[in-house]
Amino acid sequence: MIKRSHIHAFLAVVEAGSFTHAATRVRVTQPTLSAAIADLERLVGAILFIRNRRQVRLTEAGGRFLPIARELERGFRSADAFGRDGGDDWPTLKLGAIRSVSGEMLQSLAEKLADDFGIELIEGSDSELRAALGNGRIHAALTLLRPGEAGPQIKPLIAEPYVMLVAAGHRLAGGGEVAPDELAAETMIARRSCELLDVTSRFFTRHGVRPRFALRSESDDRCLRMVAAGVGITTAPLSLAIDGTVAVRVRGYDYSRHLGLLIDPNWLSETEGGARLEKFQTAWLAALSSLELRKTNGL
Rank of each mutant, 00 (worst) to 15 (best):
V26D: 02
D220M: 10
L215F: 03
R216P: 06
S290T: 00
A150D: 01
G75K: 03
R42K: 15
G273P: 00
E149A: 02
R54W: 06
D181R: 14
F280Y: 01
S201T: 14
K279N: 09
R225L: 11
D254G: 14
M1W: 10
V101Q: 06
A61Q: 14
L268S: 05
R53G: 11
M226Q: 11
G62S: 08
L288G: 00
A131N: 05
A141V: 00
E195P: 10
L196V: 10
R25I: 08
K3A: 06
Q55A: 15
E160I: 13
E186P: 07
F203I: 03
V227L: 07
P265M: 00
D198L: 13
S5Y: 11
I158F: 10
G151Q: 00
Y253Q: 09
L109T: 10
D181Q: 12
A61V: 06
I119N: 05
L215P: 00
R25V: 07
P91T: 10
G87R: 11
E73P: 13
R42F: 06
I68N: 04
L144S: 15
R4P: 06
A38V: 06
S102C: 03
V248Q: 01
A229N: 10
I233A: 12
G45K: 07
R294H: 13
V166H: 04
V28G: 01
L133G: 13
A275G: 08
A46N: 03
H8K: 14
E111L: 09
A16Q: 02
A12E: 03
A81T: 03
A168I: 05
D89T: 11
L157R: 00
G75D: 13
V26C: 12
F203R: 07
L58F: 09
A247G: 04
T235N: 03
A185G: 12
G63H: 11
G148E: 02
S239Y: 05
S239I: 03
R251D: 07
L183F: 12
A179G: 07
L299S: 02
E292A: 06
L121W: 09
G208M: 04
F19K: 11
E73Q: 15
G232R: 07
A79R: 11
S269A: 10
Q30H: 15
S125Y: 07
L157E: 00
P180G: 04
V227A: 00
A46F: 05
L172P: 03
I263R: 00
A36F: 08
A286N: 03
A214N: 02
T32L: 15
E270F: 11
T187R: 07
P67H: 14
N135S: 08
G232T: 06
A81L: 12
E60S: 15
L262M: 02
R210L: 13
A167F: 02
V178S: 12
L157V: 01
T20A: 14
P156S: 13
P161N: 04
M1A: 13
A16S: 04
D85S: 09
W90V: 13
T245Y: 11
L285S: 03
G103H: 12
E160A: 08
A287M: 08
A168H: 10
P31L: 02
I2E: 08
E278C: 05
I189V: 13
D89F: 12
